[in-house]
Amino acid sequence: MPELVVVADDLSGASEAAAAFLLRTTRISVLLRSGVPSTSSRVVAVDSDSRGSSPADAADRVKSALDSCAGVPVLKKVDSLLRGNLASEVAALRDLLGVLPVVATALPAAGRVVVDGVLRVHGVPLHDTRLWHAEERAVPRTVAHALSPIETVPVPLAAVRDGVGALARLLAAAASARLLAVCDAETDADLDVVHAAARLVTDRPLLVGSAGLAAAAARAMAPDPQWRAEPLPTARSVLVVAGTAAPAIETQLAALAPEADVVVRLDPQLLLNDPSAVGRELAARTADARCAVLSLDGGAGLRPDLAARLTTALADAVAPSAADGRALILTGGATARAVLDRLGVERLRPVAEREQAVLSTTGTGQVVVTRPGSFGGPESLIELVHTVLSWNEEPR
């Protein structure tokens, strides 16, 4: 059995959390559906694919994700921008495992910190950013708000920095009162303290956090004997599929366009009307391209209520072009999951991280790169394409 199971609500999040362990072990699996994990895997991440589900369905999905991993410590990976069904999924795992969760959602590496219970993105409170512009629900003003109606107790930064022992006593008291401890954190060191304190309270804590907390768990893990990075495979061609509506993607696509052989901006309405016809056209246009880039034309504004249908239609249209084994760069967890589902991929093996993205291989050796839609700098897609097309170079 694995040493840790990570449950995430989308594929890019599952891969992101799993890749945090690459400096300790290469025995990592990302499952696209619940099933029996490899007996050699130390870490298993399961995508419950529940980001866009109803709260009740999301709760059922996260419980099903643990069917084959009873008794293994669990880390519930949540979106670092608090999107998704946090309350219903955390409550479901709490009830299933009989353990009060410890929550720490900060992701310092991406400039996302929690102070006084408020998530701040590069210093700006989440509710004052545009990062929820594609969501149908109101943005939560605090982490506790995102977990409502679960009863929580705030753990301020000062309490985290009192040290592991003092924090462990505070977490134990919160658990005795049946309250979820919601911890502030500004740095990776803060997350290390939260992780260590939770492990003092119980050897099988239920941790709830972003990839930052997964990285803290990884730093506490003993490395494999004689661990070393695996050689990276090569890819002759790459298909970039940008299905995210995150504001930063437009700048990234504009920077990549001059280096691509084919760039296609898909009309959302045409895509919804006849994804098969769009797919045939895409397959013809991208057949001989070394680098092809597909994205949605958001010029008229992408409606949040159509997001799920657009993701399905996009995957249907992309599948014929992606089925020839070329490398795939998929931005946005829902997009990645939908495309891989069409290709029949059931698990990924993370190999490396580049540009806040995770580079993995499938069982057939196809290269798959996944990344949350809101991640990456202006040149990040260019760098990912260069990396994928020259994977035989040594890790940087």
Score class of each variant (00 low, 15 high):
L81E: 09
M221I: 05
V240L: 12
V44F: 04
G123T: 05
R24N: 00
P247Y: 11
E393W: 08
Q269N: 10
A352V: 05
A168P: 01
M1S: 14
A315N: 04
V240I: 11
A229D: 08
S15P: 04
T370D: 08
H133I: 09
L66Y: 07
H133V: 13
T335F: 02
R24E: 01
L32K: 06
L82G: 06
L272E: 12
L86A: 14
A235D: 01
A300S: 14
P247I: 05
P101F: 11
L340C: 13
D116G: 14
P320W: 06
A242E: 13
A284F: 06
A216E: 12
E16H: 04
A166N: 11
V46F: 02
L272C: 07
D116S: 15
L31W: 01
I249Y: 01
P258R: 07
R396I: 14
P73M: 07
K77F: 05
G333K: 01
L253G: 10
G377T: 11
L157Q: 11
T244Q: 04
L206V: 03
L232M: 13
L207A: 14
S321K: 01
T361G: 07
D67L: 13
R42G: 05
S54G: 15
A134P: 00
R219N: 12
G212C: 05
L100Y: 03
V115G: 00
L310A: 01
D9N: 12
A18F: 00
L340E: 08
E230S: 10
V351E: 11
R285E: 15
R309Y: 03
G299I: 04
V201E: 08
R228H: 13
R326F: 05
D128E: 15
V238T: 15
S148I: 06
V102N: 10
L343A: 08
G325S: 12
L82H: 08
V121F: 12
A235Y: 02
A216D: 07
V72H: 00
V194M: 08
V278Y: 12
H145E: 15
A319I: 07
A87K: 13
R204K: 14
G123V: 07
V118M: 08
A172Q: 14
V143D: 03
D128N: 14
L81V: 06
A106N: 13
R204Y: 03
V293R: 06
A174P: 07
G98K: 08
S68I: 00
H145D: 15
A172D: 15
D288T: 12
P304R: 09
A189N: 04
L119H: 08
R280L: 06
A58G: 09
D188E: 15
R24W: 01
S360N: 14
G344Q: 08
Q269T: 14
D57M: 10
S68W: 14
E3Y: 04
L296A: 02
V90E: 04
A277G: 07
E151F: 00
A215K: 02
S40P: 00
A255Q: 14
V367M: 10
V388Y: 13
A319G: 07
R236Y: 07
T105W: 01
V385F: 08
V368Y: 05
A352E: 10
A70Y: 08
R219V: 09
D184E: 12
H195S: 13
P372A: 15
A158P: 00
L296K: 03
G365E: 09
A254D: 15
V103H: 05
A216T: 09
S210M: 04
R141K: 12
A45R: 03
L271Y: 11
L296N: 02
S374H: 11
P55S: 01
P125I: 12
